[in-house]
């Protein structure tokens, strides 16, 4: 370890280091609050669509858990589900209507529902980018051109152009960095601080966004037609081989208890 050969003014940390950190924490908290305020309240779906979805769920859970049914129960349910899945009873939009509606791709683009979704996505990404650009410009204009701190670990020379931006000392150790790199370290490292301050709820906004987008995709314009999904599920049920857990249960229980 070489001895520190640069003496940094202690005032630097009070007037550069701490202000940047505090500003970033506060901006992050404000952004968190704004995103929760702007979150759209979930809209009511038309009852037919909900019914369609739930019926499909029911068929799927039947496929997944059919082993707990006795053979008679299985047969009745299979018959019922097959009949309903191939008919139009539970479809929100009957196939004839759907084909006429979907023929015009332009109509989908101008659909107000889709527009609103895109607006929300654009808004959330804007909320992510604007504060960061603002802080970065602020750091760059106010605190550029001098070294503010020494990092506790060595870095390779590749980082020099990025971390010592605007400092014209080509041979300086890369551990001495300018304000912009403190900004980057903060940008990466503040997530735990946010999550502690925001009661761990809205902290991981990226994760939340991903979760929100998943249900949207199902209803999106590229989604498969519901009647096709129903047909596929009907085929699944058709080829299901049923093995009830009740077959031979007496024998197994007796064996297990050593009788």
């Amino acid at each position: 370890m070489t001895t520190s050969d640069l003496v940094l003014d202690p005032q630097l940390k009070y007037w550069v280091l701490l202000p940047i950190s505090i500003a970033m924490v506060l901006v992050g908290l404000i952004r968190n609050n704004i995103t929760t305020l702007l979150q759209p309240s979930p809209k009511l779906q038309p009852y037919k669509q909900e019914r369609e979805r739930h019926f499909l769920d029911r068929a799927k859970s039947f496929t997944a858990h059919n082993h707990i049914l006795t053979p008679e129960e299985f047969a009745t349910r299979k018959q019922y589900l097959l009949a309903k899945l191939t008919s139009n009873d539970f479809l929100a939009v009957s196939p004839e209507e759907a084909t006429t509606k979907q023929q015009d791709p332009l109509a989908q683009l101008t659909d107000p529902k889709n527009n609103e979704m895109m607006m929300n996505m654009a808004l959330s990404s804007i909320l992510n980018y604007i504060p960061q650009t603002v802080i970065m410009t602020w750091v760059n204009t106010f605190f550029s051109g001098f070294i503010i701190m020494k990092l506790p670990f060595p870095l390779t020379d590749g980082f020099k152009s990025m971390l010592q931006n605007g400092i014209a000392t080509p041979d300086l150790n890369v551990s001495y960095v300018s304000a912009i790199s403190w900004y980057f370290v903060n940008l990466l490292g503040l997530r735990p601080v946010y999550s502690l301050l925001a009661c761990q709820e809205e902290a991981d906004s990226i994760q939340q966004q991903q979760q929100q987008q998943q249900p949207m995709n199902i209803a999106g314009p590229g989604a498969p037609k519901m009647d096709k999904v129903f047909k596929a599920e009907a085929e699944n049920i058709q080829i299901l081989t049923h093995e009830s857990i009740y077959t031979g249960v007496l024998q197994r229980v007796l064996e297990r208890n050593g009788l």
Partner: peptide, 20 residues
């Protein structure tokens, strides 16, 4: 995943302590 938070605190406190 928790490395950045650690590095940030380390840098901050190191800078505060070592220059004083």
């Amino acid at each position: 995943g928790n490395m950045p938070g650690f590095v940030m605190m380390w840098c901050l406190v190191y800078a505060l302590v070592s220059t004083s």
